[in-house]
């Protein structure tokens, strides 16, 4: 018997971001609202993080609501509808159901059913992971238009008495639609992980431990702040540099820099390490949105566009990094 030769899919040569949208939590939470239980001050938080306020979602708003809002906004920006989307990727660490995936529900809510849909868990690097996946799916011919959503209700994951990370965190969702392009729009994704440092940013205990020992209380998140600062500030610059090298661009050609919005001092150190020129527009949304994990890069980007600080076609360097440890970076052309 002669075996047939399989066909394999092939897609367009290039992909790009077609539209961006974002939604922030409805509540504006200033530092003064959080400092009591952690014996801190507005000045201390501003000086160490650059955060003045953070956005948090109201009790009746869940992570799916945030994700859906961002998805609609991205579709509108792209001039598409849900019916045009054939894959949905949601990156989140704050959707507290093991199954089914948030992505399938979002796909249905936006009218994209029967789009392929799945969630990814890559914490604060999740958006850049999603962009990398979407780029590959489009160019492989596996999907025409892919919706990537980073959505987090981090306020469900915090301990008001925790001095390590809780006061940094905010709620929101950012989304992009990625589809075929006549010209290159997404540079190669440089990504990786280091599970040997899994404890550096971690959950206090698992859901199973909470079930078996209810006295432990609801699991929340912690970090070793100085260690994370050192890793993010000094090891993510070479990752971002590799993304520029892979895309064939140099620091002086970058017009926009949108790192994960973890801490203003990490952002400033990355700019220094990367030797980005003074004129580069930098996403600094962390100052009043806080750290929204997987949502932070698309939120910071949509804000720069909404405020008219960046133009269509601009080259943007984005780098995400977080719990895992995991990281991913790429250079993209803004829509």
């Amino acid at each position: 018997m002669t075996r047939p030769t399989l066909r394999q899919s092939a897609g367009p040569a290039f992909s790009r971001i077609l539209g961006i949208g974002g939604v922030r939590g409805e509540l504006v939470v200033p530092n003064d609202d959080l400092v009591g239980p952690i014996d801190s001050s507005d000045e201390w938080i501003r000086q160490r993080t650059g955060i003045v306020t953070r956005r948090r979602a109201a009790a009746g708003t869940d992570v799916l609501d945030l994700a859906e809002g961002a998805a609609h906004a991205a579709l509108e920006d792209a001039g598409l509808t849900g019916a045009d989307v054939d894959a949905v990727i949601v990156s989140t660490v704050t959707y507290f159901e093991q199954t089914p995936a948030a992505a399938a529900i979002i796909a249905d809510r936006i009218g994209a059913t029967p789009a392929a849909a799945w969630d990814i868990s890559a914490a604060c690097a999740g958006y850049c992971y999603g962009v990398g996946q979407a780029d590959a799916l489009v160019r492989a011919g596996s999907a025409r238009n892919v919706l990537v959503v980073g959505a987090e209700k981090m306020s469900e994951y915090i301990d008001p008495t925790d001095r390590s990370i809780s006061f940094l965190l905010g709620d929101g969702a950012g989304a992009v639609v990625i589809g075929p392009s006549q010209t290159p729009g997404i540079g190669p994704t440089v990504w990786g992980s280091d599970g040997s440092q899994a404890k550096v940013i971690h959950q206090t205990h698992s859901g199973l431990q909470w079930r078996d020992q209810p006295e432990l209380g609801w699991p929340t998140i912690r970090q070793e702040g100085p260690t994370v600062f050192k890793w993010a500030s000094f090891q993510m610059a070479p990752v971002a540099q590799r993304a520029m090298d892979a895309a064939g661009v140099t620091a002086d050609q970058i017009e926009v820099f949108v790192p994960h919005q973890a801490n203003m001092r990490i952002i400033d150190q990355l700019i220094k390490q990367l030797k980005l020129p003074a004129g580069v527009v930098v996403g600094r949304d962390v100052a009043d949105t806080g750290n929204t994990s997987a949502a932070s890069i698309p939120l910071a980007t949509e804000r720069l566009r909404r405020e008219g600080l960046v133009s269509s076609g601009a080259l943007a360097l984005q780098v995400g990094f977080g719990a895992g440890l995991v990281y991913a970076a790429q250079v993209v052309v803004l829509p």
């Binding site: 000086q47 702040g225 100085p226 260690t227 050192k230 500030s233 000094f234």
Partner: peptide, 11 residues
């Protein structure tokens, strides 16, 4: 020097 600046100096 705060803890973050100290990490920068150490690095």
């Amino acid at each position: 020097i705060d803890s973050l600046s100290m990490m920068t100096i150490v690095t």
